[in-house]
Design a protein around this nucleic acid. Sequence first.
DNA 1: CACTTGACCTGTCCGC
DNA 2: TGCGGACAGGTCAAGT
Length: 288
Amino acid sequence: MPELPEVETVRRGLSELIIGKVVKAEAHDTAKGFPNTLDDVSRFLLGATITDVRRRAKVLMIDLSTEYSLIIHLKMTGQLVFVGETRFGAGHPNDSLVNDLPDKSTRVTLTFTDGAKLFFNDQRKFGWMRLMPTIEIPNIDFMQKVGPEPLSENFTAKEFMQRFARRGRTNIKAALLDQSVVAGIGNIYADESLWGAKIHPKRLVNTITEQEFELLFHEMRAVMNLAVEKGGSSNHTYVNAEGKKGSYMDFARVFRREGLVCPRCGTTIEKLRVAGRGTHICPFCQQV
DNA sequence: CACTTGACCTGTCCGC
DNA sequence: TGCGGACAGGTCAAGT
């Protein structure tokens, strides 16, 4: 899915586009994608004004004037695309992305009183959207166990390292992907961060030194900040709230660059499998 | 508990 | 061109 930078990019876009709008209609396909009843929808969604758009880890929250929220996980291929009254013109690079909605991947459509629409699309159907009381969001399992926000100002290298103590006997990549250790890191930014810190993804957590953790902390934050600045990464299906792709992949140093050269030492980048995920390394910079 | 693996889905790409 | 298999940005529920 979208990882933290992609979800944050969507959040920022939606904040500009939908706060203050009033929900007029809702349509969805299956109970799996949107489990709420029609009664919930009519009481807490229809007629509600959007008051805020928030993010925690990779989860988005759209707060409503009814004190309910739409809570959304995009998983691997989810998109939240806003289409206002002014659509992109024919021939515009994004024309095909937004002028053809809804399409077969559309799971939920919200229509606002001014005619604008918000589409929740999800090709693989892993993602979900549901309506719940805003005050209950912190009580759901995921929120209870999710780790700290990696880009928060008071998050320190020391705390970062301490979070890994529990996962000492697994490899560092699996631990980085564990949302209960640190929130928001996914496959792209795990690989990019480990390359930055010159740590092999198969290294066991309990063999990593304090200095290495400190470097990894700074590299991870630098990578995530750059990715947010670039509007995230678009390998396949990710687009922001306006249907546009992110440009971080233009800056990626190892992810999906197998066969190309390491920008630091010129060694050919390799792809392997770690923690069940495709993993990219420089075999010279990142030794086991 | 911590750790690993497969399941959830659809689409695409690659090799035969 | 068709077909099978591997794989794709993420979590979960099961196993050990």
